[in-house]
Every structure is written in structure tokens, then in C-alpha cells.
Nucleic acid binder design. Structure first.
Lengths: 343, 343
DNA sequence: CTGTTAGCGCATTCAA
DNA sequence: TTGAATGCGCTAACAG
């Protein structure tokens, strides 16, 4: 069996309290300190965090619930989140919701039972309900990427609407007037991006044929089929805005298989990942989210909330809970050479 | 504060043991069952897994230590691992080693202190030492992707040597004789892939100019620079084997920027990810690892070990610990159209 | 089927 | 500075 502090007591002859004090950085005689260190080394003692957590009611673990773990966006966020948490002395417990709201709700409850000290959630669900158990348990929560209306929980994200607006504006500024979009509508994110696109077109008084707005599932297939359909139109668009990573993937596949050339026949701009532009030829101009910034801000926010929670613990009517609203970071456009100038 | 079983006792008038029995699926009077369920619902009770774990000395958590969380390979494995563990009633605690052996060692010790019931490790390190604490703590461990010599710990992986051999053989069979490789040498995986390549060339009695073997860091930059250098040679290769995802990325970037066309001027075959072939034009022929199989086998193996550990607990000299050796799965080649036939 | 009791490993009082 | 005692929330005997 693993060694416990009792074993250390046997070896050193000191009391449990003294050993505990050592483990928690208290002051003791150098002599005793050395004895304990020697014993720890010999016994390969490791603190039992379950027992410690039971006493302190703090686990030093932060739960991270992601809507889907198997994509670059999520992984990159996880990387940065993990780094921040680690340097603050916390570990991350990552739960994949597999794009399933029920699993998401279970994940939340699971993490509560694990007594995590805080949670980051990149939600599947649009409804706020699934967060209630965490709020009731008084576990600080910070959302990322997708805000949840009516949850009253702060979210760190980019301004999808504004960024999409600027992306389409870039197409416009290059002279394009026949502008199409391939996007998704299941998540808030997708809706916001569509809104941004429509807004620009409206502001510029461009009439959009309904067959130019390909809003469907968030999937490679949707991107693939939509691109095929757009290129088959009698009057195909000269420029296309692609709403997310998977759609870009599918759309570029379809384009590659067609006789159309980018940017000669059709110009492209996409929302999301940078890795894509390394592979495609020509490089696609992209709206890139500041993933590291997003993660660091979310981590900072959460750690801050956790601190406050611990200090204000009992009384005090929480005067400063003034519902701060979402934290919105700017996305930047990274230019490739996928947009042709049109006269 | 969160509700405990004592609160349930207050409400129901039943004893702690009865409530505990309910929580663990024991039989009790329907009447009492209903009472408890009502109380749980009202109080929003959630089991405190720390307390439970302290008693049972099982956490229902499996630790997963990955060399780098921010890549598709890792994420995909995490996804499949997570699904398997979840359906077996376990959660995954994921630790990123950030490609750093020291962090890796800390992760192992951290998970031990969290009393995880088992571990999956995709190691950074080549040396076995970092696994010792886990072995001493008698925590079942299964490695993935990269075996660690002398650790005595089983590893689930593909046969990199054999797969690379077949990849290069495909180039050979298409008639190529001027074959180059861009690969990495920091990890076992990279070394094995290089060996497979060299072996085929040797078997076919092909002399390899040293400038054809670009072995360097596992990075996009290395792929990029190496491709540039290869194309600048007086006698450039007609076919190139690319050893991993990052290298493919860089190499394809460089190729796209050059005047060379694939497969007309240079044929390509790569080791790793499938996503790449969706984007590049033409589609690159790839050696694809059976990620789902790898994950499922590793999960099964680990869960099996955990079961055995719990049952054989005390005595029995573990007769069947016969060092089963690594579990090696076949990779498959997914053909694109990046290889030209040469006469 | 239910209740009583003890103890998991540790931190934390309070005395000494 | 150190030690003895108490309890965190729960499960696991055992007795009823």
C-alpha cells in the first residue's frame, strides 16, 4: 500500500500534526525537517489529495467541459488553459460533451461531485439550465466561445458578428458584389457570424439571392455540398465567406475537385483556424481568433472568481456582483492570397 | 454549503447506512427509496466523491498524460479514450506534458496523489524512470504511441517501421528511384519511421545520397526548409516520404510556394493525419493510424489490468505477469493522387 | 431490510 | 515549535 503520514510518524517519531505542518509549509526545526524529508524519500510518500480535499474542501482541480474535444480549436484552448492553471497550482479535469447536451449536463454534475474548485465550460447547449447545479453548488464558472443567454454566467469570446462583418467587408472592398456565405446555424456562434455577414450586405445595399446563403449543419459535408451547389449556379458568386473550420475543409475539397480556380474564378475568406492556410494553395485569408488571449483571459477571470469566493466566504452581501457581462476580444484577419480584386 | 447524507438523514429520518446503501444500489423498501429520492431532489444532493474515494480508495478517475495536447493526433485519441472510459464509469483526468520531460514526471506524481485508478501515458520521455512512481504505487499503466524501453510497461501503437517500409515501397512500385525522406529524430516514433524507410531502400539496393535524408526536428519549420532544400538540389528527388503531420504541413507549404507541381514534378507520401488530404490539392497519399482502434485497445487493456489488480489484490504471486509485450496494430495506406507513375 | 459503529488520511483546533 | 484530539463525508462491517 501507499505510504501515509502515519508511516512517516513511525519512522520519524514525530506527531501527525508536525508532519502535516511540514507538508503545508509550516515552520519546524531543521532537524525534524530533515528527518521528515528523509522518510518521505524512503517511503516514496505522496500526499493523498482525496483525504486532504475532504478536510479542506478544496480539490485544487478545475473542471473543463468542452463541447467536442476532437478539434483544433478546443485542443488549442485546452493547451493554453492548462498552462495557466498549472502555473496557478491547479490541474484540469477535462470532460468531453461529445456535442451532446445530455452528456454535457452529466459532465457538470460529475465535476460537482468531484468537488472541483471552478469550471470552464465551452457549451453545447443554448439553454442555461444545465449550469444550475454548478451555480447552486457555488462553484465559480466561466464560459468560453459561446455565451448562454439568461445564465448570468460570464463568457469570454470574440465578437463573431463584428468579425464576420469585417470579413465580408474585405470582400466588398476588393470589389466583389456577388457574395455568398456557407455557414452553420446550430450554435450561437454560427448565427452571429451569419448576422454579421447579412448586416454588411444590407449596409452596402447588396441584394442577396437566397441560394447564396448556404446555412446548414456545422460539418464538412455541408461545406462540401454547398460549395458544389454554389459553383453550379447559373450566376455563381465571385466571393464566398466560409463560417467555420469544418465548412472551410469541405468547401475547399469541393473547390479542388472542380474546374474553378481560387482566386481567379472565386475568392475565399474563412472564419477560424490558421492551420488551414498552411496547406491550401493559394493561402486562404482567414479571420483568426486569438486563442491564447481567450484562454488566458478566461483562466484569469475564473481564478479571480475562485479567490473572491474563498475570501468573502460567509457574510457580506456580495456587493460587487454586478453582472459584468461578457468579455469580448477582437479577432484579427490574416491575409492570404485567396481574394482577387474585381473591377 | 452542499448537502450531505446527514442532511438527508434529517429530512428522511433514516440512518446513514441506509442512505449509503441507496446510493450504492442496495435493496430497500420502496417507501424509503422514495423518501430518499425526494430528499436528494430537494436538497440538490450530489455525492462527495472525495469522501467516497477516501473510504473505497478508488477514485473512478483514469489519468491520461499526453506529450502534447494541442495536436489532432492527441485530441482524437483523447476523444475515443474518453468515450470508452465514460461508458465504463470512469472519467479522464488529462494532463499535458507540453513536450517537457520534467512536466511529464510531475504529471505522473500529481495523478498518483489524486489516487487515479489507472493511467494512459503517451510519453515524451525515452527513459523509463518517470514511470517508476506509478509502478511503485501499483497503479496500472498502459503506454500509447511510443514505447519506453526497459519500463516493462505495455504499449499500444502501430508498427511505424513496417508502415514506413510499405509507404516507401509504394513509391518504389510506382517506379521512383530518387526517393527522399523528411523526418524527425527526437522521438522513437520518428526513428522507427526512418528505419523503415532506410530498410526498404537498402532492400531495393538504392543508394541514398545523404542530402536526401532530411532528419531534423519534429516541426513545421523543418518540413518547410527541408522541402525547399530538396527542390533546390541539382538532382532533386522524384518522390518524398514525409514522416509526420507537422512535417507534411511545412513541406506542402514550401511546395505550394515553389514552381514544382505535385505529382507531376514530385510525388508525395506522408505519415499521419487524414485531415490533410482533404485540403491539399492533389490529395496526398497517407499512412493513416487506426486511432480509434488504438484508443479502444489501450482502454480495454487498462480496464482489464485495473480489474485484475483489484481482484488479485493480496496474495497470489501474480503468476500470469508474463510481460505480454507491446500491442501492435496495423496502419493502412489511404491513397490520394499525389504519386505519379515513373517509367 | 435497517441501524450502530468504526475508520479511510489528513488538516486543524487547542494545549503544552 | 510540537502533540493529542476531533471531524471532514462516506462506506463497510456487523448486529438487530
Amino acid at each position: 500500500m501507499a505510504a501515509t503520514i502515519k508511516d512517516i510518524r513511525e519512522v520519524t517519531g514525530l506527531s501527525l500534526a508536525t508532519i502535516s505542518k511540514y507538508l503545508n509549509g509550516g515552520n519546524l526545526l531543521p532537524e525534524n525537517k530533515a528527518k521528515i524529508e528523509k522518510a518521505i524519500d524512503e517511503l516514496h510518500y505522496e500526499v493523498n489529495e482525496m483525504a486532504r480535499g475532504l478536510v479542506t474542501s478544496r480539490s485544487k482541480v478545475i473542471g473543463v467541459v468542452v463541447f467536442d474535444i476532437a478539434n483544433v480549436f478546443t485542443c488549442t484552448l485546452l493547451k493554453y488553459l492548462g498552462e495557466r492553471f498549472r502555473s496557478a497550482g491547479y490541474a484540469a479535469m477535462i470532460c468531453d460533451s461529445q456535442n451532446n447536451e445530455q452528456i454535457e449536463a452529466e459532465n457538470i454534475r460529475f465535476l460537482i461531485s468531484k468537488k472541483v474548485d471552478g469550471m470552464i465550460v465551452i457549451p453545447v447547449g443554448l439553454t442555461a439550465e444545465f449550469l444550475n447545479p454548478a451555480l447552486r453548488a457555488e462553484i465559480p464558472v466561466v464560459l468560453m466561445d459561446r455565451s448562454v443567454d439568461g445564465s448570468g454566467v460570464q463568457c469570454v469570446k470574440v465578437d463573431n458578428r463584428e468579425s464576420s462583418y469585417r470579413a465580408v467587408e474585405m470582400l466588398y472592398d476588393y470589389g466583389h458584389r456577388k457574395i455568398a456565405m456557407i455557414g452553420s446555424d446550430i450554435e450561437v456562434t454560427g448565427k452571429e457570424r451569419e448576422q454579421g455577414c447579412r448586416q454588411l450586405l444590407k449596409d452596402k445595399k447588396i441584394e442577396v439571392p437566397p441560394e447564396y446563403m448556404k446555412i446548414g449543419r456545422h460539418s464538412i459535408e455541408h461545406g462540401y455540398k454547398s460549395m458544389q451547389e454554389l459553383l453550379k449556379l447559373e450566376e455563381p458568386p465571385t466571393a464566398i465567406f466560409m463560417g467555420n473550420f469544418e465548412i472551410i475543409l469541405g468547401a475547399v475539397m469541393a473547390l479542388n475537385e472542380s474546374s474553378f480556380q481560387c482566386p481567379h474564378d472565386v475568392s475565399l475568406i474563412g472564419f477560424d483556424d490558421l492551420i488551414i492556410s498552411n496547406l491550401s494553395n493559394p493561402r486562404i485569408t482567414l479571420v483568426v481568433q486569438p486563442l491564447q488571449d481567450l484562454a488566458e483571459n478566461a483562466a484569469k477571470l475564473l481564478l479571480g472568481k475562485m479567490d473572491k469566493d474563498r475570501n468573502s466566504s460567509d457574510e457580506e452581501p456580495e456587493e460587487d456582483t454586478q453582472m459584468p457581462g461578457d468579455l469580448i476580444l477582437p479577432a484579427r484577419i490574416v491575409e492570404g492570397n485567396s481574394i482577387a480584386r474585381v473591377e
